[in-house]
Write a protein that binds this DNA or RNA. Sequence first.
DNA 1: CGCGACGTTGATTTGCCTCAACGATTGTGG
DNA 2: CCACAATCGTTGAGGCAAATCAACGTCGCG
Lengths: 199, 199
Amino acid sequence: MFENILANISKVVSLTGEEEELLTSQLICRQIPRKTVLLRAGEICQFEGYIQKGCVRVYCMDEGGNEVTIIFAVEDWWISDIASFQYQVPSALYMETLEDSEIYMLTPEKKEKLLQAVPLFERLFRMLVQRRLSTLQERLVDTITKSAADRYVEFVAKYPTIINRVPQYYIASYLGVSPEFVSKIRTRLAKQGKHLSEE
Amino acid sequence: MFENILANISKVVSLTGEEEELLTSQLICRQIPRKTVLLRAGEICQFEGYIQKGCVRVYCMDEGGNEVTIIFAVEDWWISDIASFQYQVPSALYMETLEDSEIYMLTPEKKEKLLQAVPLFERLFRMLVQRRLSTLQERLVDTITKSAADRYVEFVAKYPTIINRVPQYYIASYLGVSPEFVSKIRTRLAKQGKHLSEE
DNA sequence: CGCGACGTTGATTTGCCTCAACGATTGTGG
DNA sequence: CCACAATCGTTGAGGCAAATCAACGTCGCG
């Protein structure tokens, strides 16, 4: 049952059997139907979760009411609004499942219990945040320097599975462009691809 | 001598006197003249630093050779390329001082020593990364949703001291716009300000 | 069947870039 | 101490990427 999450963690830190059991004993396993809202802006995020199955979209609203997708989290990803979770302050984010999902969750108390009991868990979560920071930084640079078309191509290359799992207008809101423009990018790429394969 | 860094840390975790001494005993204090390169892309980042005095710019190059400024770090900020530092892999970043600076540095070994000795340090650094993640996420959203003018105004409001310390074309590379356009934004704002104060 | 959700396509507009020329300031060597 | 170059900021003309708006296809589903 917990092979996936334990394998995920073992890439970061080496837990003893006991420590693994302590971890899994704290996890709350939830089956969540698609289109379920897990978190709304203004609420306090009460979970840090590992996605065993399914897909969750994390997003926020700008002042104009436009959605900006922060991540699509699929199998083997962790999700949380760390700031809201850590300091128990209202979140600025929304989270919702895009598919029927199975998520293992920690509450603030249960996470704290782990951290207190085993310092290695501090390290684990530090590593997870570090990784997330690196990818986010890379994405910021891409957003600043690359054209929408380049970002689209890169997204497809990086997350080939996600493309087929989420509607195109969500991809647009991740890339930071209008849905119409994503459509235009795709037709342009399709034509180019055709040209190339005809030569 | 170490009041600032200890005060900075005490906002996150409570160290005993002994732990504080352990920390400060590991710090390497460096006086660094302005325009000194601390890290170049391709090198491995061998330090995590706390800025006691001065100003450091962290940036990277895109494919076209344009610089993108990741942060301006001034007094009371931490700097590092966490990914490169942690995994001892080549960095994609550059760092250079913009002013004569005084920086307290940890090497990977010395940081590791702290982490091993006192689990609370794991927590400290986890918190620091979390905070950085939150601000970076916010910046990504701003970059995606807001106009360059809005981002400029927000930057000024958020970092009023920095504006006067770094040249304008670095601000441009932080905001992700051309230096010329920052100039145009400023003249536009100045005119607006005048209008407002004339009414 | 008909409706709503999603994607496409085209016309127009706009935000920002690029290039080029021109001040203003600074520092540096004669 | 001046001349000069270098550095940095400003301004304008023209161009391009992407937004906006509107209309139209298409598909799944009540």
